[in-house]
């Protein structure tokens, strides 16, 4: 892998961590959060996972897993556009990989800002696609809201993923 410069060795279980957490995060966004004033729009957890692992361990998050996570999300959330999330997540991964140097070994705020950019891109793409397919410009409000709430929840997601990341060496033993 051209982008893996880490010399640490991870066992089979540890190598599964990025993929597994990405799938789990995709499922997380489907759970019915009844938190007051949370609204019916859930944060895009899958986006967080794909972003996080694309920055830190892209070698352990194969494209096929990103594709499957997106497909699973689409099949379970009842969208008429199965494949849209897969497309968005694949593009986010590609975009993040190309900008990876900007994020590595930088303070969290830079990472957060980068994630905001990725979220704007992802949800703008979704908005454009759905508008195109519905032959009618969708009201952008829910998309803007989802971008904001996803960005606001990123530190939580990022913290959980970092925990999983730190547990990886222990899992290899």
């Amino acid at each position: 892998m051209p982008y893996s410069r880490n010399r640490d060795y991870f066992g089979f279980v540890a190598r599964m961590v990025p993929g597994t957490t990405t799938i789990l995060f995709a499922l997380l966004s489907l759970l019915p959060f009844h938190v007051p004033s949370f609204g019916s729009i859930a944060p895009g957890f899958a986006l967080m996972a794909v972003f996080h692992w694309s920055v830190y361990r892209p070698d352990l998050l194969p494209l096929s897993v990103v594709f499957l996570a997106g497909l699973l999300l689409d099949l379970l959330n009842g969208t008429p556009y199965v494949g849209l999330s897969a497309l968005v997540l694949l593009l986010v991964r590609t975009g993040v990989l190309s900008q990876r140097r900007v994020f590595s070994h930088r303070p969290f705020s830079i990472l957060w800002l980068g994630f905001f950019g990725a979220a704007v891109g992802a949800f703008a793409l979704e908005w454009a696609f759905v508008s195109l397919m519905q032959v009618h410009a969708m009201t952008p409000r829910p998309f803007v809201f989802q971008t904001l709430i996803t960005t606001a929840c990123f530190p939580i997601g990022s913290y959980l993923l970092a925990l999983a990341h730190r547990a990886m060496p222990a899992l290899s033993a």
Binding site: S29, L30, L31, P32, F33, S40, I41, A42, L76, N77, G78, T79, F123, E126, W127, V130, M138, P142, F143, F145, Q146
Partner: peptide, 15 residues
């Protein structure tokens, strides 16, 4: 019992 919520910006359905 509601077990899943589409949660998307362009979907309003529940499982």
């Amino acid at each position: 019992q509601v077990i899943a919520d589409s949660g998307g910006a362009f979907l309003r359905n529940i499982l």
